[in-house]
């Protein structure tokens, strides 16, 4: 482990923006390099960890859920926790509590914890660097 910590703030919900995928890729690369990662999931991003996500068939293509082989964001988060364990580094994923309550998104996979913007400040103060990935707004 490097002793370095990267904090990310993410805001996009699952299946809405490529930014979520890029955020997962950044976290994955950081963990593999032996860095600890802190994630502050804000707004729609709190739904990334929802336990109720499930695969589904695609009637338009006539494919089953198995054929579709969906990537569920909750599985990705679970995989990142396993990766952190494998590399002996920490993944600290905090879901914004108010954002969770607004969305009824409180039932999530093992790992993430509930917090608030004050936790994000603490994360920033205790990290090597911080990247904020805001929701995309066209202009």
């Amino acid at each position: 482990m490097s002793g370095k910590i990267l904090t990310l703030a993410i805001m996009d919900g699952p299946y809405e923006s490529t930014c979520s995928t890029t955020a997962f890729r950044i976290i994955d690369a950081a963990l593999r390099k032996g860095h600890s990662v802190k994630v502050f999931a804000y707004e729609g991003a709190v739904s990334l960890t929802m336990k109720a996500q499930k695969e589904h068939p695609n009637p338009a293509h006539g494919t089953s859920a198995e054929d579709e082989h969906h990537v569920l964001t909750k599985r990705w988060v679970e995989g990142l926790y396993e990766l952190a364990k494998k590399h002996h580094v920490d993944l600290d994923w905090v879901n914004c509590g108010l954002c969770v309550d607004e969305r009824g998104a409180g039932d999530w996979v093992v790992g993430p914890t509930r917090g608030g913007p004050a936790d994000f400040l603490t994360m920033v103060e205790n990290s090597t660097n911080t990247l904020v990935i805001p929701s995309k707004r066209n202009s």
């Binding site: 990267l6 950044i26 690369a29 860095h35 660097n129």
Partner: peptide, 11 residues
């Protein structure tokens, strides 16, 4: 992403 993370790890 590896290079991006290397850049980000510069405090």
């Amino acid at each position: 992403m590896d290079q991006l993370v290397d850049l980000l790890m510069d405090d």
